[in-house]
Amino acid sequence: MTTLTSGMKRLAVFALAVVSTPFVAYAAGEAIHIDRQKWNFAGFSGRFDQNQLQRGFQVYKDACAQCHGISRVYFRNLVQPGGPVFNEDAVKGLAATYQIQDGPNDDGKMFKRPGRLSDRVPPPYANEQEARSVHNGAYPPDLSLITKARGVEYQGSLFAHPFHILKDMVGGYQEGGADYVYALLTGYAQAPADFKLADGMQYNKAFPGHQISMPPPLSEGAIKYQDGTPATVDQMARDVVAFLHWAGDPKQDERKRMGFLVLVYLGFTALLLYGAKRRIWAKAH
């Protein structure tokens, strides 16, 4: 027994020594810190701001749509509640400015017709190959799910990580992709002197590897907002990120609204169940 206890002590000391050795990460590439932004659609009570979504769509259309599609968004989505809720006639008009391939007609030919509410927002390229050939091999991804399809890696210390995870679960953190896209849009800068930038590439603080083939899409005052908001790069980036976040999760507001009611109901039910359980078990003691 004594030998075992002393053996265990030794093991404990060893374990402690091992555990207190600092972890060193050899992650491939340099870790990039992405700041968390304050989003009005984030968290328990966050909802989309209709005006911001409208501005965001304008930024998308003027600054992104030449190269990036949002092919999972239909024109009808733009008038639905929980989204930008544009005027229906305006969206019908917008849709009609696109030519959509349809058919075959009675003669067996494919034909073009003006877009309708039931059509998807047409992507700028027919397929990935066409997009790549236009962009020198680079592929501008579809943006319908971009804020869902990107995330932010944790950068802090190992020992704080479990608490960080817990905090994000309790806070319902879902905006890593939004934070990243915002950082990317505002992350263009002069490359450091010792950085080897390849031909036709731009330096970007947020992009993995810091070399991106997309030229800076936003510039001060490039857009004139219909509601008169000053079009700073920061403002445009925030608006377009909000719009893209909505495009990836158009049911968010409905989900959170229902979630609130469900939690209230379940909380109350749990309390009642606890009372009932106490009552019944009182007889057992």
Binding site: G43, F44, K148, D168, M169, G172, Y173, Q174, R255, K256, M258, G259, F260, V262, L263, L266, G267, T269, A270, L273, Y274, A276, K277
Partner: peptide, 20 residues
């Protein structure tokens, strides 16, 4: 009662952190 508390946790993720 145990199930009631569990479902609360479940619902939190479904409605407020579905992708977490």
């Amino acid at each position: 009662f145990g199930l009631g508390v569990f479902v609360l946790l479940f619902a939190w993720f479904v409605f407020f952190a579905p992708d977490y």
